[in-house]
């Protein structure tokens, strides 16, 4: 039967080994050639967009990359689905945008801030999400299909 010493050894060795593997895999994920995010395309404008995203806790209602609060739509590939014009109008609106009665906070951003957000969304939209991008944005998938069919 298992002794207390063996149980402790199982805990300590198991923890140590899995942590080592975890750190190794993390380093591997961020090593050269493994990037799926087009890291080089993160311009100062994209970073400004991310700052606006965070300072207003957009994730507190929306989701992005599937992460957030499920109260408002997923915004991965939102530019492809809705177009720049509508998104800018919503972001700059002085009154709450209210689709089907569900209110968004009226942020009343400047045109420049709205452009920063669009740049951020465009960068997000290009990330390789291991297949999730097609699930979450069926419209974008349909558009791709139509494009490839017309090319053929």
């Amino acid at each position: 039967m298992l002794s207390k010493q063996q149980a402790r050894a199982f805990f300590l060795i198991g923890t140590f080994v899995t942590f080592l593997i975890f750190i190794g895999l993390t380093i591997y994920s961020f090593s050269d050639g493994q990037d799926q995010t087009n890291y080089e395309n993160i311009t100062p404008q994209v970073v400004r967009g991310k700052v606006i995203w965070e300072e207003n806790n957009c994730m507190g209602c929306h989701t992005i990359l599937g992460e957030g609060a499920y109260y408002a739509p997923e915004l991965t590939k939102v530019v492809e689905r809705r177009g720049e014009g509508l998104i800018k109008a919503i972001l700059m609106s002085p009154v709450p945008w209210e689709p089907n009665g569900r209110k968004m906070v009226a942020y009343g951003f400047s045109a420049e801030e709205a452009d920063d957000m669009i740049a951020f969304f465009n960068w997000i939209g290009e990330i390789d999400l291991n297949g999730f991008d097609r699930i979450v944005s069926p419209l974008a998938k349909d558009k791709q299909l139509i494009n490839s069919q017309t090319e053929n």
Partner: peptide, 17 residues
Amino acid sequence: VLGTGHHYYYIGVNKIW
């Protein structure tokens, strides 16, 4: 610890997760 990987499936990192 390695189960953390279930948060990494679809956020834009390597498929190994």
